[in-house]
């Protein structure tokens, strides 16, 4: 067993030494495809995190008709609070709304009223928060109660964002599959060339009674090691680049939420590493399937 293991490792090493350029090409293809895979994964993780963050800050603005009495407003608020899925209802009078706007615009309150022609054009409103973000459209639909003028929420934005991340996911998957196929093909070409250049040796091995698995293993481990090196390089590149990117984004665009979770990070990095090995194993398995029928 140990003898066989030693033999396999020696053969693997020799074979890489014999075809350095092809081995390099295989490693690089695996690396490139896994770098793309890694970045896409992190991008998708962040995009969905971004969507979730925006969703959790979602609120429904319920604008009231003018000239409602205080009692009518209170009744309406009580009604809304009792709707299923509603977390909280906050009343903002037109005066408060004006204060908010003037704070945002940074001007004087009376100046703004003067600019607007002497009257406050803003309506009274409720700010409704829901328990689950996906209930927003549902709850919004039930808010068309008497006394309500308009209901607004960031529907389009959320839908666009989700559509975009969905699209991105598909593009990412297609690109990744294309590169994975390319690396599998390259690795299997590498193995095939190796097998071809060693067909005499393999024939002799078979004639002196080597079992197929004994002949196959060195090629198989070679594929796995090439894939593993490619995956390892990709993991290093993606890992460092992402860490750097996180720091950069936090320093420059601080409001953008970035996923900086150690568990997820290491899951992705380990995933890249293992995918490299899998690609290598598949590539060599494909090329080894047929040639051993001596």
């Amino acid at each position: 067993m140990l003898n066989t293991l030693r033999y396999i490792l020696r053969e693997t090493f020799n074979s890489v030494k014999r075809n350095p350029w092809l081995s390099m090409a295989s490693i690089l293809t695996v690396m490139v495809s896994l770098v793309i895979l890694g970045f896409s994964t992190f991008f998708l993780i962040n995009a969905s995190n971004l969507a979730k963050t925006f969703e959790s800050e979602l609120e429904i603005a319920v604008f009231l008709q003018k000239n409602m009495t205080v009692q009518q407003i209170k009744d309406l608020q009580a009604k809304i609070e009792q709707l299923p899925g509603v977390a909280s209802v906050l009343f903002i009078s037109q005066d408060q709304a004006l204060v908010e706007i003037s704070q945002i615009l940074g001007g004087d309150q009376s100046n703004i009223i003067a600019d607007l022609g002497g009257t406050n054009p803003l309506p009274d409103k409720f700010t409704v928060k829901v328990i689950e973000a996906q209930d927003v459209p549902n709850v919004a639909g039930q808010l068309a109660l008497p006394g309500v003028n308009k209901v607004r929420y960031g529907q389009e934005f959320i839908e666009q964002l989700l559509k975009f991340t969905e699209w991105l996911r598909w593009v990412g998957i297609v690109v990744i599959i294309a590169f994975a196929v390319a690396s599998i093909v390259l690795i299997s070409i590498n193995i095939k060339m190796n097998v071809f250049s060693r067909r005499r040796e393999i024939q002799i091995m078979k004639l002196v009674g080597a079992s197929n698995s004994f002949i196959r293993w060195p090629f198989f481990t070679e594929g796995m090691i090439l894939g593993l090196i490619g995956g390892g390089l990709a993991a290093i590149i993606v890992g460092f680049a992402y860490q750097w990117l996180v720091l950069y984004i936090q320093a420059t665009v601080a409001f953008l939420p970035v996923v900086h979770n150690n568990l997820i990070f290491w899951q992705v990095i380990t995933g890249l590493f293992l995918s490299g090995m899998a690609i290598g194993a598949i590539g060599s398995a494909i090329s080894l399937r047929k040639f051993l029928q001596v």
């Binding site: 003898n3 066989t4 002196v208 080597a210 004994f214």
Partner: peptide
């Protein structure tokens, strides 16, 4: 070689 391949 003939012995190695059979795991002696």
């Amino acid at each position: 070689f003939a012995l190695e391949v059979i795991g002696v």
